[in-house]
Nucleic acid binder design. Structure first.
Length: 166
DNA sequence: GGGGTGATTGTTCTT
DNA sequence: AAGAACAATCACCCC
């Protein structure tokens, strides 16, 4: 840890004891693992390329994140004193599980929409890569999107066409 | 001053 | 197929 890790630790450290792995803590500080792994950086050529992506579109926020963004606002209103990101994360996580499918639906819908845009961005991104990236070694492998013709002037048609079959 | 961390879950990615 | 990494956030700490 970079020391500063436990930002809340400085404020309230006793909570740490009650903090027990909900499940597996996933990778338990994956970031730390990454750095630790960096020691053995066995990156293949493709991996290397994947790393130095100029402006790769970031992954779309999952429904949970969409919900979290809003939840954070509310949480801060209810707990303006709480400044720990982890606090909101935990609270949000529990709340999220408390939500019903119907309540998560709107968030999922939004997440789905984000994903759609993400794919779109990837198309443009991939295309750009083809243009600029001429390493010659390998070319687009995973997504060889053969976009029809029009993509350049895409101005965002952001229609909320949700087929409400309901 | 800036970067890195902590925590949540979901989704995308990588092997 | 399964695991790994990363998505936002924000105050705080080390070099």
């Amino acid at each position: 840890m970079k020391g500063g890790g436990k930002g809340k630790g400085a404020i309230k450290k006793d909570t740490k004891e009650t903090l027990k792995p909900v499940d597996d803590r996933r990778v338990g500080k994956r970031k730390a693992a990454i750095k630790a792994d960096k020691s053995t950086k066995k990156l293949t050529k493709k991996e290397l390329k994947a790393q130095k992506d100029p402006n790769k579109p970031k992954r779309p926020p999952s429904a949970f994140f969409v919900f979290l963004e809003e939840f954070r606002k509310i949480y801060k209103q209810d707990h303006p004193n709480v400044k720990a990101v982890s606090a909101v994360g935990k609270a949000g996580g529990e709340k999220w599980k408390s939500l019903s499918a119907a309540e998560k639906a709107p968030y999922e819908a939004k997440a789905a929409k984000r994903k759609s845009e993400y794919e779109k961005q990837m198309s443009a991104y991939n295309k750009k890569q083809e243009s600029t990236a001429d390493d010659g070694d390998e070319e687009s492998d995973r997504s060889k999107s053969e976009i029809s013709d029009e993509e350049d002037g895409e101005s965002g048609e952001e229609g909320d066409e949700e087929d409400d079959d309901d």
